[in-house]
Structure formats: structure tokens, C-alpha cells
Design a protein around this nucleic acid. Sequence first.
DNA 1: TGTTAGCACTCAATCAAATAGAGTGCTAAC
DNA 2: GTTAGCACTCTATTTGATTGAGTGCTAACA
Lengths: 343, 343
Amino acid sequence: MQLTERKLRILQAIIRNYLETGEPVGSRTISKYTDLNLSSATIRNEMSDLEEMGYILQPHTSAGRIPSDKGYRLYVDTMMEEKEKELEELKEMMLEKEDKMDHLLKQVAKLLAVNTNYATMISAPTIHTNKIKFLQLSRVDSNQLLAVVVVEGNVIKNNIIPVSEEMNDETLLKLNILLNTHLNGLALEEINLGMISAMKQQAGIHSTVVGDVIDAIAESIKADEDLEIYTSGANNIFKYPELADQQKASEIINTFEEKQMLTELVQDTLADESNTGIQVYIGNETPIQTMKDCSVVTATYELGEGMRGTIGIIGPKRMDYDKVVGTLKTITHQLDELYKKKT
Amino acid sequence: MQLTERKLRILQAIIRNYLETGEPVGSRTISKYTDLNLSSATIRNEMSDLEEMGYILQPHTSAGRIPSDKGYRLYVDTMMEEKEKELEELKEMMLEKEDKMDHLLKQVAKLLAVNTNYATMISAPTIHTNKIKFLQLSRVDSNQLLAVVVVEGNVIKNNIIPVSEEMNDETLLKLNILLNTHLNGLALEEINLGMISAMKQQAGIHSTVVGDVIDAIAESIKADEDLEIYTSGANNIFKYPELADQQKASEIINTFEEKQMLTELVQDTLADESNTGIQVYIGNETPIQTMKDCSVVTATYELGEGMRGTIGIIGPKRMDYDKVVGTLKTITHQLDELYKKKT
DNA sequence: TGTTAGCACTCAATCAAATAGAGTGCTAAC
DNA sequence: GTTAGCACTCTATTTGATTGAGTGCTAACA
């Protein structure tokens, strides 16, 4: 069957209306609300076609129609006009730059949640090029060393290493020089066993310490490979009756709290290198099972030097896609600006 | 009116039963379930008295009775026998010691949540004696210094300081010695203006840097004075119908997510220096408004060197107080052990 | 004087039937 | 191709009746 211009407009009208009300929408409503000037009967015929084609469906006989996942998909792909929404407030807040990354991310999540009335999440950027920029051992007390590693992007890791042997200032200095000359500018993957044994040899009697230190460094760089995720506005789901029943709400809230499951979403988004920046998962398209009654919109942001993270907005299927996409674009853009300003 | 032994036993029976079922309990039930051998009529008389005295109340005429806040309070204060609950699993899990504090705390929160079926929270220990143990400046690149501060309890803070002037290795070394000799062993409050100006004078042309560095140190120590709170099991509230209606659930979930409000609870608990370790807030006794339909049990844990934090369990008023208190005691004890083992 | 049996009464919860209303599909007319 | 009209379907809402748990009170009992 042909998807005529008129059918498209009717479908559009149905979706728009359903987004607003959350109620199944009937032929009469469409006939009155649109400027198509068609009677409800005609609309009914068209709707019947649209249903046959799979774009809309009836929750039960003698109810109005609601968009199917396929319908939403069409809407998102073809009909969406990006709203020029006023996000000034948002920009301003972001510009009073918090220099602590996690604070910033928390704020972004919250801002988005308040602004959109959906639940939101944001993953901390994963550092792909984990290049060591600076490295230092210091003695905290007689049996503890402190290893500080700065990797590209000025991310600082530290680790306390227990040592058994006494070390004087001179040896420490030598060790520092040794480590820095060998490891500076390298990523974790580039440090191989050959280098390690070479360093151990040069360290002489302190080779055990070198081994411990390298282990500690490896551990501290790796440590938060399990990426941090910040969420906000989980309780927004209560605003949408179709998600707010106990069973579903409990599951969704749990997913948000556990965060673990959200990583799938992050992975999925980041994996798609080719993406234009914004991805929309409708209903069952989402990689997270518990969110099959939701829609999820994700965006990738980049902070230069290969640091990429994900922002996600989770809401009902009847999500205001226009607004969400617009907001996400603004946010990712802002993050970009912020990074530029900082460097 | 006298609160006779018999009345007490009836009250106890009512509360016990209500804790189990969550339903208002009637005279007949009490008459059958207890070994008091009293008819329902007698029980009714006694219940009538108990109601007059404020220990129980009726949701509506011709419903059974439920405990009032005052009733719960009496129960908690006098009648509770601590259950020797098997917490072996819990002990074991805690003993595979995560050495990262935040991971540990997250785990404890989760463990508690799963174990008790209530919502839980735990605040990171606040460091009261913020004594500087070790301090070091290093040059990351030509216009950035890295300041690392280790305070007592091996808590490490770092901060990147932009500097305008070129500094060679020697100056840096001098500065490090200067700072360490002056500031070592001091708490933030003990650093006064006199010392700062003395240091600046000794630093000569680098006095600006000293100023910047001290500011950075002050900032990094203070930074997370706004204490970190980890929560878990918020969705457990759905298990208790009396909390699970949309309005309440939404509020509670929000409180958990915002965390900000939970600090009140933490403050309140920590403030009471004299407390025996465990505090029970029933209904309106809680400092958090949104939790007025809940009960909150908090415990203070100590990690030596003046580091104290709070653990809280939030559930319905008909909480299994015995179990919760028992569990909390075990946990705080375990944390104590953990600390000892670590040092 | 304390305890109990019995009865009238109250009230929430449950169920079934009636009703309203939104919406569809079909047919015949335009 | 479009529309008006009507019969039909199904859900949601309302209403009224019923049930049952529970109370309070009174009179009888030990």
C-alpha cells in the first residue's frame, strides 16, 4: 500500500496528539484538530489503512489508536523538526564552570532532568589514549610510598604502595627519573615486559619496588575503567502514568540505581563510531531489557584528546523527541565549548 | 492510667502482628494468637484503653488498630530483644576488603539493602582531624603545578595549579621543603596568616606561588566537606504498600537521589556525640520531612583517627527493628575490625 | 470486680449490574 | 472519493447491594 502524503499527515497528527495527552487518539479528534478538513469517517478509513501498515495500533477494539514502535520510528526519522528551544538558562549554568569533572557531570544530569522532565544519565568520559604525562613517587612515611600519575587530559590518579625496604631520598629521586624517562608519553598498552625488565635491571637492588610501582600504576590507571555514571530525575518517570505502575517503576528505578545495567547503553552508544552524535532507541530497540516500555535518546560528547562520554535521556515512548534531540545537541555542543575554553 | 503488664503484652502482640502483616490488627486476632487466654471482648477493652493512652490508633471506625509513633517508640525502647541473626555472608563479603573507600561503602550500602529489604544509605567518613601528613608540589608542564596532599587516614587530595612564572627544579625542591617543614602535622584550622606571611617572606620572589599553593591546598582539603553519600535499595520501598503510592514513592525516591537532604540525617546523627551508636527515628521524629511516613534507623561508625560516618536504614514504620538494629551493630563492628586489620 | 457472651452498629472492600461515552466498521447516499 | 448515519463493541464509571471484620455497649457470670 502507498503511504500517501495525507496518510503521513494523519499519522503525524496522531503522534503529536498522543505525545501531548498520553491517551489513545480517535478519528474525531484528528478531524477536528487538523487543517485537513476531512470528516472523522474519512480519517477512520485512513487510520484503518495505517493500522494495517503497522504504523499505529489499537489497545483494544473501540479505543483510539496509539503509535506503534514503527510509527514512532518513522516520525523520528522523517518528520521531526528541531525546535529552537530557549536553553539560555542552561548555557549560563554550565558556564559557571565547575572544574571538578564529577561535579560538572552531576550538574549536567540534573539540569537535563529538570529541563526535560525525563530521567537522565551521563557517563564520565572514558580515556582512550591513556598516555602517561607525569609520574611521581614520594615517601609518605617509612613504609609507604605514594605514586601519583597524571595522564593526558590532566586526570590524576594516585595509589599508596606499601614497601618493605627502607629508601633514602636519593634512591627515590633516581627511581623517579628512571620511571619518568622510560614511561613518559606511553599508554598503558605500550608498556611491555621488555621495558619493565630493563627498568628493573637499572634499579638494581630496588627491582622489587619497581615491580610494585608499575603494578600500582597499571592498577590505578585501569581502576575506573568500569565507568562512572551519574543519573538524575529518576523520579520523573512517575509523571508518566504508563510507566508509573509499581512493577515497572520499581524496575526502572532499580536500573537507575544499579547503574551497572546502564553501562550497556553507554557501550552501545560509544561503540557506534559512525553515529552522527544522537541515537534514538524506541521501546524494544533499547539494549536494556527493563526499559522496553521506554524510549531512550543518547548522545555522544567528546572532550578532545579522545575522551568520549555518553548522555542519555530516558522517558516514555511518547517522548517529546524534538525537544530532547534539540537539548542534547545544545548540551554536547556546550561541553565541547567548555573544553575548548579550558585549554 | 496504669500501663499494666497485661496491656504491655497486648501492645507487644499488636505491634508484632502488624509488623508481619502490615494490616490493622483486631481484637479477635490477638485473642487467638497470644497465650494470654483472654477473650476478644477483654482484649477490646484493653485496646480501648491503649488507644486512649495514645499507643495505638484506628485508621477508621471498625478497623483494627495500628501502632502509633508513641507505640513504636515504647516498643523500640523497652521490648526489643536483639535477634542473633546470621550475618555470616555479610561478614565474609566485607572481608574481601576493597581498599578503595568508595567502593567499600557502595558495597556496604548494597549489602545492607539486599539483606534487610529496606532502603539504605551510608555517608563517607568525615575527617575531623584534617592533619596534613605529607605535601608535595611537582611540575606537570611548564605552566602547571600539581599539588598532592596526604592527610591523616591516608586520604589523598590533589589539585592542579596554573602558574605564570617559570620554575626550575631547584626552586621547586626548596618550595617543597619550605611547605613541608611549616605545614606538616597541622590541621587546616591551625594554619594562620602569620605562618603564611612567614613562608611568603622566605620564598622571596616566589611568594605569589606560595599563596596560590596554600589556597589550592585549602580548597582541596575542604572540597568534599559536602559529604559524599551512597545509597542503595531505594526501590525496596515498593515492597511496602503503605509507602508505594505514587506521591510518596516519588518523594522518597527523589530524596534518595538528591542525597542533599540526607545530609540532614547524617548531621543529626553525628551531632549527637553522646549517642550509644544507634538511633531510631519514628515517623515525624525524623529530621527529613519527606520521610515522615517512614522510620529511620541510623548508626555511627568510626574508623579511628576521628573519622566518623553514618549508616542509615529507611523503611516503613512497621520495620523489623530487632533485625535492623542487630544488623547495624554487626556492620559497624565489622567496619571497625576492617580498619584495625588495615593499619 | 474483673471477665465474657452476645448483639447492634459502622465502615471499607468487593462485586455485579447498569449506564455512559468514546470509538469503530459498514453501508448507502452524495 | 467523501461523508452522514447507524449499529455495534468495549472500557470506564457509577450505583447499589452484600459481606465481613471489627468495635462498643450491655447484661450476665464467676
